[in-house]
Design a protein around this nucleic acid. Sequence first.
DNA 1: GTCTATAGGCAGATAGAC
DNA 2: GTCTATCTGCCTATAGAC
Lengths: 197, 197
Amino acid sequence: MDRVKQAQEDSTDTATQILDVAERLVQVRGFNAFSYADVAGELGLTNAALHYHFPSKPELGEALIARYAIRFMGALAEIDESFSDPLQKIDAYTGLYAGVLRSQRMCLCGMLAADYETLSTGMRGAVVDFFEGNERWLAEVLKQGRDDGTLDFPGSPLEEARSIVSGLEGAMLIARSMGEIKRFKSAATHLMTALRP
Amino acid sequence: MDRVKQAQEDSTDTATQILDVAERLVQVRGFNAFSYADVAGELGLTNAALHYHFPSKPELGEALIARYAIRFMGALAEIDESFSDPLQKIDAYTGLYAGVLRSQRMCLCGMLAADYETLSTGMRGAVVDFFEGNERWLAEVLKQGRDDGTLDFPGSPLEEARSIVSGLEGAMLIARSMGEIKRFKSAATHLMTALRP
DNA sequence: GTCTATAGGCAGATAGAC
DNA sequence: GTCTATCTGCCTATAGAC
């Protein structure tokens, strides 16, 4: 876990470079469709060097999710600081997803949700935690919006939050295959529209 | 393609049994996380026997999607015959997805959408066709519902159809990881609620 | 149609030199 | 920290006997 912190501070660190390449490969191809050799090849390293930094593939996977989750939660904290209007917060939230999709990638944890049955227990827990963190943040924003009258929706804030996270992940998943970011934008707008009182 | 037809008529046919096992493995683990040996082992056959029926893995993959798409479109035709009310049709449509999830599986094409970048061009085209077929059918139902006043939604029927397909696929993807079918049901209900005038 | 046998390659992982 | 060298195992795929 110290390695994760260090990686955020020094972007030329080898461990960081490994995480960067591996992250992209997982987001594009999936956890079971990339190899240590793929990453090593891109960085001009050997297979063995990677194993020094991340002894096993599941450990690499857990480090990937940990870093991704920290970054994502950090982005949510920035949104909280930048906006007070709940609708603007949610708009910024969908923007995070759009940014990922724009780089031709799927959400890391969305991809890992597809690979879920083949993951180690450590990776599984981390994926679940990621989604629960997203839902908690979003539910809080929704609650705030309902309280101040800027948002309206049926059911509980948590249920609505779950529907939104599902909708965004599904829209990313399909938009990537269909080759149109427009499809994602349309789905995101649709989810936002449904929140207007 | 003749093999697909034959497979639907004779469920003891070896090709059919291969497709059955491979289909489940793809839906649970993903296309890159199952092997010919996995399928052969379950059926008490050898690797070589599978290659006789499906010479290469991409060809097996294309046969899987072809059969899945035929079955799914058949189910949509049955819905059209069974119901005339658009809302009931859509309820039955979400029921198809719920049935897949209930058997601990992800939608075949939703899973393949995650694996998309690693698929052959033939498989990619078949996945896209599957989603477009779904969207077309759903858009037609939505149009019918808007025309007869039983449904209301913002934007075009096709845009709404795409949002619904995305929402259902995303809900399946996440509900499977979170281990709660309830989550899917909740999301499906949410999508239906939004269609009421 | 299914088998045995096998090819050729790539996977994740380790030992030991530098 | 990174290398070379190597292990073991699994992968897709094929040849040829039955």
